Amino acid sequence: MNSILKKYKSYITLEQGLSNNTREAYLHDVEKLLTYFEDEKIDFLKVELDHFHSFAAALMDVGIGERSIARILSGVRSFYKFLVLDGYLEQDPTELLESPKIGKHLPEVLSVEEIDAIEGIIDVSTPEGQRDRAAIEVLYSCGLRVSELCNLLLSDLYLDEVFLRVTGKGNKQRLVPISERAIRELKAWFAFRNSINIKPGEEDYVFISAARKKHLSRITVFHNIKVYAEQAGIQKTISPHTFRHSFATHLLEGGANLRAIQTMLGHESISTTEIYTHIDRRFLRDQILQHFPRNQKD
């Protein structure tokens, strides 16, 4: 079994190019499954669809939610796909395995005024303040994931050409336009950044912790955004992802094509982008009142 798991880890690392977090999650999912099969005295190479249904039911019995079960089953499918590809099995027993139906969760959307309020509360006279305002503006203006922001490199910036090179999930790269405002905030941050004695190996990262002398962590970005939102009087529950969702929603409201939004967000499937088609009800109402023929006065 250890030999198989080592081969599987190589498969999801080298052939599928999954991120560290996804790899660890998949391996953890497989361990859950194999422990369950061992307890139930089920041979993992002689399983049937009903065995996976029983596994999912057991997860639910211990209080694991539907969204988490769906993610675990995704790791299970990946493992059995590998077993087929590597010749351990002739047929994939998870081929008809369905995940629990999950309602789409629409994250909060910030208005432009709320984003300006959050940025406006930040004290940009300090290195940390200017760094954070630049980071928030890049999150919003470019629609980045927090991991993409933390891993952004100076060598990824093409500010004269007004775009960034972003490395997303699966190490796939895309080009994203950057706003003039984000460029101004970055340049203001660089004035502080140039005075930091950055640790060796960290010199190419855009966003550096002045205290730790290395690139920002996701936890730091999450924490700082929460603090700034509270100080700005924002009542909504927000995270770095809120700025990505706001970016996509504002583009859609402005008339951008869904395919263009898909490209900028780095989604493989248009179905993933469709969660960002949530439009504020007031905006939708105003558009109907303004443009629908029956609502137009003679």
Rank of each mutant, 00 (worst) to 15 (best):
S10W: 10
K187I: 02
I64R: 10
T35D: 03
N2M: 09
V138E: 03
L73G: 05
S209I: 15
D86R: 09
I270R: 08
V162I: 06
E90T: 03
L83V: 15
C150D: 13
I72W: 02
M60L: 12
E128G: 06
D132L: 13
A260T: 14
N2E: 15
H250I: 10
A70F: 01
I219M: 13
T22C: 01
D61C: 00
I42C: 07
N257A: 04
A58I: 07
R71P: 02
E98V: 11
L216H: 05
H245F: 00
P100G: 11
R71A: 05
G254L: 06
Y36E: 01
L33D: 04
R294I: 12
H278T: 00
S239I: 05
S111E: 12
L106G: 06
G266Y: 06
V76F: 05
F163Y: 15
Y80E: 15
R281H: 00
F222H: 08
E31L: 13
R133I: 15
V84G: 04
P127K: 05
L110C: 09
L159I: 12
Y158W: 02
G201H: 03
D286L: 13
H51R: 02
T22V: 04
S195Q: 03
L152G: 02
G63P: 05
W189P: 07
K81W: 01
P93F: 14
E108V: 13
A191W: 00
K32R: 13
Y36K: 02
S125M: 04
Y80K: 11
F37V: 08
H223P: 01
R131Q: 09
K7M: 08
K199L: 15
I238W: 11
Q130T: 02
G168P: 08
K199E: 15
N194I: 08
F37R: 06
Q16R: 13
I136A: 03
L18S: 08
S74P: 06
E40K: 15
I178G: 07
L157P: 03
D298F: 06
L251I: 07
L83A: 09
A56Y: 00
V47F: 10
S147P: 04
L289S: 10
E98N: 14
G254F: 01
K41Q: 05
L5V: 02
E253C: 07
A232W: 04
F207R: 11
Y140A: 10
A134F: 01
I234L: 15
G103N: 14
R67T: 10
K32E: 13
T220G: 01
I72K: 03
D156H: 11
I4S: 12
R285A: 09
E161K: 12
Y11V: 11
D286S: 10
R145S: 08
R218F: 02
S78T: 11
A56W: 00
V124M: 14
V30K: 11
R77L: 10
N21R: 03
A182M: 04
L258G: 05
H51M: 10
S3F: 02
V221F: 12
N21Q: 10
H51L: 07
V176E: 04
G65R: 14
D160H: 04
Y80N: 08
F207V: 15
I196P: 03
T94G: 10
L89T: 03
S239D: 03
I69P: 04
K226G: 10
Q91P: 01
